[in-house]
Amino acid sequence: MNPPDFPLELDQQLCFVLYSTSLAMTKAYKPLLEKLGLTYPQYLAMLVLWESDDLTVKEMAARLSLDSATMTPLLKRLEAQGYVERVRGVEDERQVYIRLTEPGRALRQPARAIPNEIYCASGSDLDAMLRLRGDLARLRASLAQYLDQ
Rank of each mutant, 00 (worst) to 15 (best):
N2H: 14
N2T: 07
P3S: 07
P4K: 14
D5E: 15
F6C: 08
L8C: 12
L8N: 14
L8D: 15
E9V: 14
E9N: 12
D11K: 09
Q12G: 07
Q12L: 09
L14M: 12
V17A: 12
V17D: 13
L18A: 06
S22D: 04
L23V: 11
L23G: 08
M25Q: 12
T26P: 01
P31V: 04
L32P: 07
Y40E: 05
Y40W: 11
P41K: 05
P41V: 02
P41D: 01
Y43N: 07
Y43E: 03
L44S: 03
L44R: 10
L44M: 10
A45N: 04
A45R: 05
M46S: 05
V48Q: 09
V48S: 08
V48L: 04
V48F: 06
V48P: 03
L49S: 00
L49P: 00
W50V: 02
W50C: 02
E51M: 08
D54T: 05
T56H: 05
T56N: 01
T56L: 02
K58R: 08
E59Q: 11
M60F: 03
M60W: 02
M60P: 00
A61H: 01
L64G: 02
L64V: 05
L64M: 12
S65A: 07
S65G: 05
L66D: 00
D67L: 04
S68P: 00
T70H: 05
M71R: 01
T72H: 07
P73L: 03
L74M: 11
L75I: 02
K76L: 01
K76C: 01
K76Y: 05
L78M: 07
L78Y: 07
L78R: 06
E79A: 13
E79C: 08
G82R: 11
Y83R: 12
E85A: 07
R86V: 00
G89C: 02
V90N: 10
D92F: 04
E93A: 06
R94Q: 09
Q95M: 07
Q95G: 01
R99I: 03
R99Y: 08
L100P: 00
T101C: 06
P103V: 09
G104S: 05
A106P: 14
L107P: 04
R108H: 14
Q109F: 15
P110I: 07
A113K: 15
I114H: 10
N116M: 14
E117P: 04
I118F: 08
C120R: 14
C120A: 15
A121S: 13
S122K: 11
G123D: 11
D125M: 10
D127F: 13
A128T: 14
A128N: 07
M129E: 14
L130R: 15
L132G: 10
R133V: 10
D135V: 09
R138E: 14
R138P: 01
R140M: 07
R140K: 06
A141D: 09
S142Q: 13
A144H: 09
A144F: 11
Q145N: 14
D148T: 03
